[in-house]
Simulated scan of single mutants.
Amino acid sequence: MALLRSGAQGLCCVTLAVLLCCGAYTEASVLNLRRFIGCAVREFTFLARKPGCGGLHITTDACWGRCETWQKPVLEPPFIESHQRVCTYNETRQETVLLPNCTAGVDPSYSFPVALRCDCGLCLTSTTECITSV
């Protein structure tokens, strides 16, 4: 029975990975993603722009997810113990595209990271937008 249960969990994880990687959008996958805790590579589209050039829609892989976070009160300052992890890039590669309609003298090159592997980890301001205090 344990082997059967383990196989079912593995199939569920494979199914979720396929949905995340392929960007499948169905009502069922939206419900699963709302409950998903973890970090995964997922397809993402954004508009690349820079002064002097036209914009270009780029589809790439980026990190996406929610990681376990908790806080508890303690008796010593700062009176709270935090465990805050974020979905962050573990491995990337750089890609470069040429933006259209650049004015003379403007380099049309636009570089961006492509996520190869993502994990829950500490927030590093070198790769991730982190809120450190309010």
Rank of each mutant, 00 (worst) to 15 (best):
Q94A: 06
V74C: 12
L116T: 08
T125F: 06
G55A: 14
L116H: 14
E27I: 03
S111W: 04
D61P: 12
S126Q: 13
T45L: 06
S111G: 07
S29M: 09
P78I: 11
T15G: 10
E68F: 14
T45P: 03
Q84R: 06
V14G: 06
C53K: 05
S109C: 07
G65R: 00
C102F: 09
S126G: 12
S133G: 13
I58E: 06
C21S: 13
R5G: 11
G23H: 08
T96L: 03
L56C: 01
G55T: 02
A62V: 05
Y110S: 05
F112P: 03
E81W: 08
C102I: 05
L20Y: 05
Q94Y: 07
T92K: 12
A17Q: 06
F79Q: 00
E95T: 06
A8D: 03
C67V: 05
V14C: 02
V30G: 13
C39S: 04
R85V: 06
H57K: 13
Q9H: 15
C123R: 00
S109P: 03
A62H: 10
T15R: 09
F112I: 08
Y89R: 02
V134C: 08
Y110D: 03
C12M: 15
R66S: 12
N90K: 15
L3S: 04
L99E: 00
D119E: 15
R85A: 11
G121I: 09
G55P: 00
M1F: 12
R49F: 09
G65N: 04
T103F: 04
C102M: 12
E129M: 14
S82R: 00
G7H: 09
L122R: 11
G54C: 04
Y89F: 13
F36D: 07
T128H: 06
T59H: 05
L116V: 13
A8N: 06
E129T: 13
L20I: 00
P77I: 05
S133W: 12
P108R: 04
P100V: 05
L99Q: 00
P73V: 00
H57V: 07
E91W: 14
L99G: 02
L98H: 13
V41G: 08
T127G: 09
C87Y: 10
G10A: 10
C53V: 08
T127M: 11
P73R: 12
T26F: 09
C118Q: 01
K50L: 14
H57W: 03
S109M: 08
